[in-house]
Amino acid sequence: MRLQHYLGGLENLGPVNFFEKKVFMAEWEKRIFGIHTVMMAESVHLDKSLPKYPLSEVPTAFKDTWTWASLRIGAENMQPFEYFKYRYYEKWLMGISQFFIDRGYVTAQELATLTEHYRAHPDSPLPEQPNPALKEQVVRYLHHGDSGLRAPVDQVRFAVGDTVYVADPEAADHTRLPGFLRNKKGTVTEVYPGAFEYFVSTGPDGLDGPQHVYGVSFLASDIWGPDKSEPNTVIYADLFEAYLKPVHSM
């Protein structure tokens, strides 16, 4: 099991660092956020996405799929203490740098050498090489997004008001099932119209192709027990159909 899949409910972590209202804790973090978002905007899957983008008209050397799933898989595969050790965008920087090395876009040596250069000369400029057509695609992507909405391939299995149990699939590299909900009893509160396809297959975890998604409510006391939960508290999660089982199957 992956600790990252079970963050919800972990105890003894101390106070929330709520004084940190800043989005970026250091100026450099803006750049890695921007690089990631450009990668999403030029991901090769966008010529088949909703909406479809004219990617063939966008001049870029990027020839891979890059989505939220790519980043999340990286974070969920980290050594768990390292996951806690590093700040949010530090993890992004590690994961994205390694991706470009692994995929052969840059070599580790090139990156190390140029990093040394910028350590010694922090104000030395970036290369000046604008790409107006790519910039246009970035703006288009930010304005129109990448929806997982698809035509349903089968009938919905659950209706509003149904009692359901959350499945407990085999642990995989990546999941969209919050671990604290596994095996818990909930109530369907919403059946979302259409079906939704996640960016990648999660294998034995259960996401693969378009699925119905349900809003499911859980009493806090049903999740944490009466002594560990707060009164009059309900937790809602949006769950893909693969993560739900009918009550009579238990």
Binding site: A26, E27, W28, K30, R31, I32, F33, G34, I35, T37, V38, M39, E42, P59, T60, A61, F62, E90, L93, I96, S97, F100, Y105, V106, E110, L111, L114, T115, E116, H117, Y118, R119, P122, L126, P127, E128, Q129, P130, N131, P132, L134, K135, V138, V139, L142
Partner: peptide
Amino acid sequence: EAASAAKVRALEALLIKKGVLGSDSVDAVL
């Protein structure tokens, strides 16, 4: 922080040189 700042700048510079990003791409996001 200085190490991360230099690394992200090096990464952005390399990706611009290799044609993965334009020098105006990240700024467009921000």
